[in-house]
Design a protein around this nucleic acid. Structure first.
Length: 187
DNA sequence: AGATTGATCCAT
DNA sequence: TGGATCAATCTG
């Protein structure tokens, strides 16, 4: 099964729109063993310099510079010394925003959690700054699945209690159908 | 609930 | 340069 690689114009839109739009799209990774793909089930939006939950809220640093870059770049960072998280950069240059990929359905079950997604798809910091529109190594595809607004649940983001009022914003989006339907799978 | 693990950020 | 912190996960 193949689809259309998401172009830069998909990512260069308001981040909440991009986040919802990514549900039902496919993450595709070229590995030594071949292509691995999976359907995006859950995401989180990190929006702009004021969003205290966002790494970019403290301004430009070596780590956050990529979030200020052009839409369609991958922002990959290591968290807790053990796990990686994959984000896609959104909006315009110099406006820091991104969408975290939190859960992906694949042939063996559900990679539920950003660290599990990266482990399954063999994503680490070497893919930081990767151009997701290049069609190499790692990209996202549209396979023409229509997602209705009613299929999307909105919840507070995970692990951002330090962010004060920003922690309560319902900027985590998940396909409702998957919550009870799918089982967790450990690779 | 507690341990884990290392990159990152900022202040002592 | 040291140390607190962390967009998480696993085990008990």
């Amino acid at each position: 099964m193949s689809g259309v690689i998401l172009p830069a114009s998909f990512y260069a839109r308001p981040t909440l729109q991009v986040a919802r739009g990514l549900l039902g799209k496919y993450l595709v990774r070229e590995t030594a063993a071949g292509l691995r793909d999976g359907r995006i089930i859950e995401v989180e939006a990190y929006v702009g310099p004021k969003d205290r939950a966002s790494h970019a809220s403290r301004g430009r640093t070596n780590r956050t510079e990529v979030m200020f870059g052009p839409a369609g770049l991958a922002y990959v960072y290591m968290v807790y010394g053990m796990y990686h998280c994959l984000n896609v950069v959104t909006e315009r240059i110099d406006y820091p925003a991104a969408v975290l990929i939190r859960a992906v359905e694949h042939e063996a079950g559900l990679a539920d959690g950003p660290g599990r997604v990266c482990r399954l798809f063999e994503i680490d910091r070497r893919l930081n700054y990767h151009d997701l529109t290049s069609g190499k190594a790692l990209w996202l595809e549209d396979r023409e699945e229509q997602i209705q607004r009613s299929q999307i649940g909105a919840f507070p983001r995970i692990g951002v209690d330090y962010a004060g009022p920003w922690a309560a914003k319902p900027w985590r989006f998940r396909l409702k159908e998957e919550v009870s339907t799918l089982k967790s799978a450990r690779p």
